[in-house]
Computed example of a mutant assay.
Amino acid sequence: MNFVLRGALAASAALAVAACGQQEPDAVGSAQDAASVPVGQTSATVMGSNMVSAYVPNAAMGDMYEIQAADIALERSQNAQIRELAQMIKADHTAASAAMKPLAAQAAPDVEIPAELDQRRQGLIDNLRSASAEAFDRTWIDQQVAAHQEALTLHRGFSDNTDAPALAEHARTVTPKIEAHLQGAERLQSAL
């Protein structure tokens, strides 16, 4: 486990350092977003899908990130398909977040639901906000594909957890919507 996590962190650090040497803000943001992918997947696979104490904050932050990213897309994108997907993502992740809170409080009262994004996800939001108008749609859709792949890994992995059956049921319930978001994002990614 430590080896996998260290490898993902090393890859992320290397990409971030490489990005710092580039001049274009969109290129730096893209490299930072790409560096985020292995860290998120590793976290979802290794910790989040196995421990209630990791699943709850990761699922909550995933929903929080998706809601904020959708708001930014609704504000900045002129693409009707992106706006439609962003609206669906916002509605579904808002509902998922509301549904999870009482389940988490009951199953894991000692696990705090975060009130703000972690540094990695805040970096993704910052990159969305700073993306040029020309690069925004591509940046948003690339982030959505990666974030929904990570979310699927997290929720599918936790769906058979026997320590918190109500949370495992929640993971099973949200998975089809996350799959639909991912399929929509992948279609748009191919079209851009």
Rank of each mutant, 00 (worst) to 15 (best):
D126G: 12
Q106V: 11
E75Y: 07
T153W: 00
Q81H: 12
A108G: 13
G62V: 06
A60Y: 04
A146D: 15
T175A: 15
A135Q: 08
A60K: 05
A60S: 15
K101C: 01
V145G: 03
V111D: 04
N79Q: 14
A99V: 04
N127W: 06
E112L: 09
W140C: 05
R138P: 03
E84W: 02
A147V: 01
A80Y: 09
A147G: 02
Y65H: 04
L103V: 15
A166L: 08
A164V: 04
D92Y: 01
M88R: 00
E84K: 11
A168M: 08
R129T: 13
Q122W: 02
R172Q: 15
S132C: 11
A146I: 09
Q119E: 12
A95P: 08
W140A: 09
A164P: 02
D137F: 03
G123F: 02
A69W: 00
A60T: 15
I141L: 10
D118I: 04
D118E: 11
M100I: 06
D110S: 14
F136D: 11
L85V: 06
A168D: 04
R120T: 13
R120A: 06
L85M: 09
E134K: 14
Q81L: 12
L128S: 05
I72T: 05
R121M: 05
T162Q: 14
D92F: 00
A135M: 10
Q78L: 13
A54F: 11
D137L: 05
M51E: 12
T162G: 06
V111S: 08
G157L: 01
L85Y: 04
L167K: 02
S130E: 03
D126C: 09
T173Q: 13
D71I: 00
D110T: 09
G157I: 03
L154A: 07
A107F: 08
D110P: 02
H93R: 05
N79E: 13
D137V: 06
E75M: 11
E75A: 14
Q122M: 09
V145C: 01
R120E: 10
I82F: 06
R129E: 14
A98L: 12
A135T: 07
P57V: 15
T162F: 05
N127F: 03
D142H: 05
A147S: 07
H93E: 04
A98Q: 15
A69V: 05
W140V: 05
A69L: 02
D110A: 12
M64H: 00
A91P: 02
A91F: 01
A151P: 03
A168Y: 02
K90C: 03
S130R: 08
Q149H: 07
D92W: 00
L85A: 08
L154C: 10
T162A: 15
L124A: 08
